[in-house]
């Protein structure tokens, strides 16, 4: 939204690696992931299932269960504070208040046993220390704000009495109620119908304050186009390309990004074959040597099979990790 590029980033993640101990061995879910978010910026983290995007996002509020998970990073700085060295008490102050989350499945993110009103006021009581009556008032106002009719009665409803779209509206109200600095939205509309999805996007856009940043995790390129100014593309545990929305969509530099954009079924008036990416996403137990995409890449060279490419600059604020760019730069 507002261009304040010279400021320090709100969030900066450097060389984040997340691993899980499993019965079949150690799995690296996120591998040397680095990125930053400016104040007020909406950034999309896109990739296919299993690429590590959710794990990356969950590491920021340290929501990776440990064991079996292990987080290691050179730094995760949120608003100048070092997330990794915080005590769990300090962490609880950050979660919900400064960083809030919207998950994919509102029905599993809401407690089935408690009424909506009780769940919504919980955060207000905890973080803003409001008296109960006032908290109830605030929650009810938010319910109305996110477009739920009969908000006084709905405060007494249980989640199962509401549709998926309404539940997600409530999740959004809960995420925004405390004016967080950062919203992490993990596939917030994937479980919803397209017409409801469109409503939810409008809602997030309308309700989010301009200086609140958002990290939106999704597999849907259409969704990032709608909601984000900058995009991080992830493949098989690594970020492979980052850039502005227009740079990524109009001038993708990594063969994976380019292939993904071509493979998306677009609305068309005539039937026809799609340009697919051959092969399968490799299993996290068997990532290939060198570039993780080389087995599916139409341009793979000897070098790609031997070593991992570093990031190359390919435009203002646009980088991709691919050896093809080595000769260009």
């Amino acid at each position: 939204m507002t261009e304040q590029k010279k400021q320090n980033p709100l969030l900066s993640v450097r060389n984040l690696t997340v691993q899980f101990e499993t019965d079949d061995g150690l799995v690296t879910a996120a591998d040397q992931v680095s990125f930053h978010l400016m104040k007020g910026e909406n950034v999309g983290l896109v990739g296919e299932s299993g690429c590590g995007k959710s794990v990356t996002a969950l590491s920021i509020p340290r929501l990776i269960p440990s064991p079996p998970g292990r987080i290691a990073a050179d730094e995760i700085l949120f608003d100048g504070q070092d997330i990794l060295s915080m005590t769990s008490k300090e962490m609880r102050q950050i979660r919900g208040r400064a960083v809030s989350m919207i998950f994919q499945e509102p029905s599993s993110a809401l407690s089935p046993l408690h009424r909506i009103g009780r769940q919504m006021t919980e955060a207000l009581l905890l973080h803003r220390k409001l008296p109960e009556k006032e908290a109830w008032q605030v929650a009810q106002q938010w319910l109305a704000k996110v477009g739920i009719a009969d908000s006084p009665e709905r405060m007494y409803a249980y989640p199962f009495q509401l549709s998926g779209g309404m539940q997600q509206r409530i999740m959004i109200a809960m995420a925004l109620m405390l004016s967080p600095r950062l919203i992490i939205a993990d596939e917030p509309t994937t479980a919803l119908d397209v017409t409801t999805q469109a409503q939810v996007f409008d809602l997030i856009r309308d309700m989010k304050q301009d200086d609140t940043s958002m990290l939106l995790i999704t597999h849907d390129m259409g969704v990032v186009w709608e909601m984000c100014e900058r995009i991080l593309v992830m493949y098989a545990s690594q970020i492979v390309e980052t850039g502005s929305r227009d740079a990524i969509f109009k001038n993708p530099k990594h063969p994976y990004t380019a292939g993904l954009l071509k493979a998306i079924p677009k609305l068309t008036t005539s039937r026809g074959k799609l340009k697919d990416i051959p092969g399968q996403v490799p299993s996290p137990f068997h990532y290939p040597e060198g570039c993780h995409f080389q087995a599916r890449c139409p341009f793979a060279m000897k070098q790609c099979r031997e070593s991992q490419p570093r990031f190359y600059e390919c435009g203002p604020d646009h980088q991709a990790a691919c050896f093809l760019l080595a000769s260009e730069s």
Binding site: E48, A263, I264, P265, I277, R296
Partner: peptide, 14 residues
């Protein structure tokens, strides 16, 4: 299915 694989399967069906 994921996008890259979805396109493969759609093509196969066609």
């Amino acid at each position: 299915l994921d996008v890259s694989v979805q396109a493969q399967v759609l093509n196969l069906l066609m």
